[in-house]
Design a protein around this nucleic acid. Structure first.
Length: 332
DNA sequence: AAATGTGGCAACCGCCTGCTA
DNA sequence: TTAGCAGGCGGTTGCCACATT
């Protein structure tokens, strides 16, 4: 048989703890130490169940608990860890000395979550909210599973994302339809109003560096075999994790976009990288060659930051690069 | 001044996992 | 081997204080 019940739940007190109960619990634990919550209430003279005693101790009475407002650094850490760990409050609390999982959870729900929402960031996915984006090109497509895009659209510049999705959606369509969509979405720099036929379309696409060139137009295999390539020469910020087979110096093949959109290797919001320099679990990044706002620069701002500054910071969170050596096993 | 709304947070609930008799 | 409990965890509730109408 199993263990005997920890306590008889009948007649046990519930609700807020009195100072007298707190004193009893503290006194008992100071002598005997925490643990053995099954017998603790009886031995300590408390009309509580062991579970209630454990929660009261771990969430409130523990001497190493840090009370008071969360600092800016703590808030940053929570946001960063949440983007990796999700609602694993205990895991987050383990990296915030003096804070309990319950406290962090409450702070997230009452403060951080609202701030992220005000900044247009989905607090669950840590991505810009879909309802704030221009999704016209996606909505025109029947090939996309929109839910699979949730993680990717945060990591790709919206302009690139629109180009990729439009081209991808048009792979099985006629060149005329593709041309129409590109024009509708204003994805080509040059005027194509006078474009006549697929040959000219290819030429214009090549001029706009959207395609691998040169490729001979063959009407019979255009739809099935054409390899689109997206050049990203003028995209100011384009961050990708190390496991994505492309970089800012290499063209991103549409096939890569497609594979990440369509299969289980899709980028997840948890793959965001941050550079919390004080935490050995994070890697400091060399941002000298890009325009991203580094966390170091954010950290250098006065600690008595305003709410607006915090909101600005939350928005900038979406622009960080992914450290190549980030080991996610460290967080799990 | 009273009623109502809102925010913050301690505590509870219920589920899951691992342990143990 | 397995039933059942302790401990741990995330989600939710309810109370209290303060703000607003």
């Amino acid at each position: 048989m199993g263990r005997s019940p920890c306590c008889d739940k009948n007649g046990l007190k519930k609700g807020p703890w009195t100072t007298e109960e707190d004193h009893k619990l503290i006194q008992y634990i100071q002598i005997h130490g925490p643990g053995n919550w099954r017998t603790l209430p009886k031995n300590a003279g408390l009309q509580r169940c062991g579970k209630s005693c454990r929660l009261r101790w771990t969430n409130y009475l523990r001497p190493d608990i840090k009370r008071g407002r969360f600092s800016f650094e703590e808030e940053e850490t929570i946001i960063q860890l949440h983007s990796v760990l999700g609602n694993k409050w205990s895991a987050i609390a383990a990296r915030l000395p003096g804070r309990t999982d319950n406290e962090i959870k409450n702070y997230w729900n009452t403060h951080i979550r609202k701030r992220l929402l005000r900044s247009g960031i989905d607090p669950v996915t840590h991505s810009p909210r879909l309802d704030l984006l221009d999704l016209s090109s996606l909505l025109n497509s029947t090939q996309f599973n929109l839910s699979s895009l949730l993680g990717l659209q945060a990591l790709i510049n919206p302009e690139i994302f629109r180009i990729a999705t439009t081209l991808l959606a048009s792979q099985n369509e006629t060149p005329e339809l593709l041309l129409q969509k590109l024009q509708e979405n204003q994805l080509l720099n040059t005027q194509l109003q006078n474009a006549e036929g697929p040959e000219l379309l290819l030429q214009k696409l090549e001029e706009n560096q959207l395609l691998n060139a040169p490729i001979q137009y063959q009407p019979q295999n255009f739809q099935a075999n054409y390899q689109f390539q997206i050049q990203i020469p003028e995209i100011p910020t384009f961050s990708t994790p190390s496991n994505v087979p492309c970089s800012s110096s290499q063209p991103m093949q549409l096939g890569h976009v497609e594979s990440y959109l369509m299969n289980d290797q899709m980028l997840l919001p948890q793959h965001y990288g941050y550079c919390a320099s004080d935490d050995s679990n994070f890697q400091s990044l060399n941002n000298s060659s890009n325009q991203n706002i580094s966390l170091d620069s954010v950290l250098s701002t006065p600690l008595s930051s305003t709410e607006d500054e915090k909101e600005s910071y939350c928005s900038n969170l979406m622009k960080f690069e992914i450290p190549a050596s980030l080991n996610f096993d460290d967080f799990m």
